[in-house]
Amino acid sequence: MANLELFDQDLIDNPSARVPVCLVLDTSGSMSGDKIDELNRGVQLFFNEVREDEMASLSAEISIITFGGTVQQVVEFANIENQTVPNLTPTGRTPMGEAVNLALDVLEARKKTYASLGVDYYQPWLVLMTDGAPTDDITGAARRTSELIQNNKLTIFPIGIGAEAHMPTLQQFSPKLPPVKLKGLNFNEFFLWLSQSITMKSQSTPGEDVKALPINPWADLTL
């Protein structure tokens, strides 16, 4: 069908409640080298894991927003079967505030789509990863996430990568859970954990208090 991307029949046919997940990833210049390679491998693994789990593949919907120079929605929400994972390349500065704002807009719009078609959904998850400090003003975006989190309308996973990651900034986005520093470049462990947490979530009903799995395998607990 010519308009495949705009016409996602699965939105109607699939009765499973959806878990919208937005990955907001730092692709600024400082991510060059091993970091971006490991991140790319991790994201790839994440998509494969979700695809392979029958329940998660019916429930999870994934979007990716990158901030590296520009803010780009490199993967739009869709049925995961129809999505391709781009190779991320590092460049430019770190407009984190704008990226989080876009992520919130995108998630809000997706929820509206679910509601207007009568599809049940969970409150969205936002994964925010950075190896540095923002180059734009994050106060507006941080206020938005904080408000959503206080009203149980969003779960955020702020992750710091490497020694330069500015943890106090990440803390501003997350009034409930403290940010976590990734152990080394264990992106794979993180994304494996994330897909397993989605699987658990997808076996509950929206509104149920499902705790994410323990974070030990990928978190740097010396923080």
């Binding site: 308009n3 705009l6 016409f7 996602d8 029949q9 939105l11 109607i12 929400f77 807009d105 809000e108 719009a109 997706r110 509206k112 789509t113 207007s116 078609l117």
Partner: peptide, 11 residues
Amino acid sequence: LTRVQRDEAAA
């Protein structure tokens, strides 16, 4: 579906 998804993109 087209309308809803266009609205989403526009938003």
